[in-house]
């Protein structure tokens, strides 16, 4: 590029500052993890002495690699079951969410469908106006869904926002492809499954990530609708752990070896709840960076 040759000293200094600033901000985004990972694998003694900062300490008196906390978390049948249960509901939720989104987005991207505008408006309204906690709660109560897995899977499965993202992607596909398929005698079902879906895989991957992460991360609906301990997702159990720690911190009772052991275990639990996301994240990241969300804003 031309302006590269012309770069002045001032420009170069500005470049360096920008690089350092961005680097620093990115570093701040992962720094807390270094502390949590380090704490989770360090011995209770060094953690109690507040020696663990952002790197694990394996040398010195009473130090060493300590994976007891992970063993303890895995041995805890309640946490172990929560983990499995959360995986199950996350998969169910993602599949249902994708299914509903695909059906709605395809139908609403066909201009020839009568009533398209009306149905579209109904979807949009739900983005800006909700009934609120108690009406939602009473609805699930009336349907007999309180304290069931369905309460964690069904209500949030259809999202107008995600539908718009997918609809935009489908609208962007050239009409000629659809027309060619129609000439070959394809009906809507076949056009959807054999023509459309293969072409919107990047968008589907992104939406799958949104659905899965959304389900994996939320705890509030479990807090509202679930009493049964066996149906509590991992994040809700973790919430109860964190809330207890926050209260004891508020009472300034956070010193002592007992609490420090709890700190190591808490770090291990936090890691267990985070690891699945960190594993999935790099695979899907390439898709959402490619500008999948552009269409979603303008609506």
């Amino acid at each position: 590029m031309e302006n590269k040759i012309k770069k002045s000293t001032g420009d170069r200094i500005a470049d360096v500052i920008i690089y350092i600033l961005i680097g620093l901000l990115s570093f701040i985004c992962i720094l807390p993890f270094f502390h949590v990972i380090s704490t989770s694998i360090s011995s209770n003694t060094v953690v109690a002495a507040n020696k663990v900062w952002f790197l694990p300490i394996f040398t010195g008196e009473g130090a060493g690699v300590n994976i007891d906390a992970y063993k303890q978390v895995i041995a805890d049948s309640s946490i172990r079951w929560s983990f499995i249960y959360t995986v199950i509901i996350t998969v169910l939720f993602t599949l249902l969410g994708l299914f509903l989104t695909i059906c709605a987005a395809y139908a609403l991207s066909r201009e020839r469908m009568m009533g398209r505008k009306t149905i579209n408006t109904i979807f949009i309204i739900t983005m800006y106006f909700g009934a609120g906690l108690i009406p939602d709660y009473l609805l699930l109560d009336t349907l007999g869904l309180l304290d069931t897995t369905a309460a964690l899977v069904c209500p949030l499965a259809i999202s107008a926002y995600n539908m718009i993202i997918l609809r935009t992607a489908m609208t962007a596909i050239p009409k000629s492809l659809e027309e060619a398929a129609q000439l070959d005698g394809c009906d809507d079902f076949r056009i959807l499954f054999q023509v459309m879906l293969p072409l919107v895989v990047p968008t589907l991957a992104t939406l799958a990530l949104f659905y899965a992460v959304g389900r994996w991360n939320s705890y509030s609906d479990a807090m509202y609708y679930i009493q049964n301990d066996a149906l509590k997702p991992l994040q809700y159990k973790l919430y109860q752990l964190v809330a207890a720690a926050a209260e004891s911190s508020a009472l300034e009772a956070d010193a002592g070896a007992q609490a420090q052991n709890a700190e190591v275990v808490k770090s291990a639990t936090i890691m267990c709840a985070t690891i699945p996301i960190i594993i999935v994240y790099p695979f899907i990241q390439k898709y959402f960076v490619s500008g999948v969300m552009i269409g979603a804003v303008k609506e």
Partner: peptide, 16 residues
């Protein structure tokens, strides 16, 4: 990355 973390995890880390 932080966008993909739950508030429970963020709060847990913050309190620590």
């Amino acid at each position: 990355l932080p966008h993909f973390l739950s508030w429970v995890i963020i709060a847990g880390i913050a309190y620590q």
